[in-house]
């Protein structure tokens, strides 16, 4: 028996496999067809204080090996999330804790939404993930994640506003990840999520227009995986903060790569759209790998690269 339990900065997870923000709604939408028993957490789509309309259509484009999206963080606001979505989530069988992805237009709004979620005292909510790296929304996205000083400031404010485990989701498109990791650590974050989508663009050459309503978007899916592994590897070398790794996981092999590079847990994103059973299959594959390699606990995989 492999011990599949892990701990992500205070969030106890029965499985190292979670779902990634934006790809699994508010946690309840897939309840008819996904086996939640093998998930260690689900991550809810980005929540802010008030409703937000998101971007114009088109909001996605399929590309070889992946997907470019520019949804633009559409949502009904934190009140609707806490009342309606968390009620729907209470009907999910074998439900794991929810990581609530949050964002805001200002530093204060980030803190306010985190405080509101904490104050609601919902037992199913296990952690907060700060989105400071969405490529699709100027105000509440990457502007907070592209400068280590600004990042330190906003993470500090959210840290002061909540006692829930605090995860910060960082962008991959920076010259080096280390200063951002350091800023999160200094500000009191409990864990990191790596990576957000990679800024991208698709052009319709016949019409000579950008395909996406937002003109540009974020690339996810199979093709981003090696780039994500590198960021996780770089981050793990400079921090003891646990890492929730995501980016192009379609099979157990992809998840195991992340763990060997330094991740404590992994999240399935774009793969769920085409294959909703991906998380369960990845879980089974990790168990099989641990058994075959003599690991008694999945935690032993974290950073277990054999490097000279």
């Amino acid at each position: 028996m492999v011990n599949m339990g892990t701990n992500l900065g205070g969030l106890a997870m029965r499985s190292p496999v979670a779902t990634a923000s934006g790809t699994f709604g508010y946690g309840h939408e897939y309840r008819d067809i996904v086996d939640y028993s093998k998930l260690g957490a689900v991550t809810a789509k980005g929540v802010r204080m008030e409703a937000w309309p998101g971007n114009a259509m088109m909001r996605h484009a399929e590309v070889p090996g992946g997907l470019v999206n520019a949804i633009g963080l559409q949502g009904m606001g934190v009140k609707h999330f806490l009342e309606r979505d968390m009620f729907m989530y209470s009907m999910v069988k074998d439900a794991p804790p929810v990581i609530v992805n949050v964002w805001g237009g200002t530093e204060d709004e980030y803190a306010q939404v985190a405080e509101t979620i904490s104050a609601a005292g919902k037992p199913q909510i296990g952690a907060i993930e700060m989105n400071v790296s969405c490529p699709n929304v100027k105000a509440g996205g990457h502007t907070f994640g592209q400068d280590p000083k600004v990042l330190f400031s906003v993470v500090s404010k959210v840290r002061a506003a909540t006692k829930l485990p605090l995860i910060v989701k960082l962008a991959p498109n920076v010259p080096a990840i280390a200063p951002y990791v350091q800023a999160c650590e200094d500000a009191g974050a409990d864990a990191l999520s790596l990576i957000n989508t990679i800024p991208a663009m698709v052009i319709d050459i016949e019409k000579r227009v950008p395909v996406l309503g937002n003109r540009t978007g974020g690339l996810s899916g199979r093709c981003v995986h090696p780039a994500a592994v590198k960021v996780v590897y770089d981050a793990h070398r400079v921090t003891k903060l646990p890492i929730l790794a995501m980016g192009g996981i379609y099979e157990a092999k992809d998840a195991i790569e992340f763990m060997l590079a330094g991740a404590s847990a992994v999240a399935i994103g774009t793969a769920t759209f085409s294959a909703p059973d991906t998380a369960a299959k990845v879980y089974d594959g990790i168990v099989e790998y641990c058994e075959r390699h003599g690991f008694g606990s999945v935690g032993e995989l974290t950073g277990a690269l054999c490097e000279s």
Binding site: T23, I33, K45, G54, Q74
Partner: peptide
Amino acid sequence: DRHMICGMGACFACIQKTVRGNSRCCI
């Protein structure tokens, strides 16, 4: 009729404007 990603109401890609705002065609 809209292009879709998830078909489950999870991704918010297949939007139609309605009196409620941007509604998901899939759900």
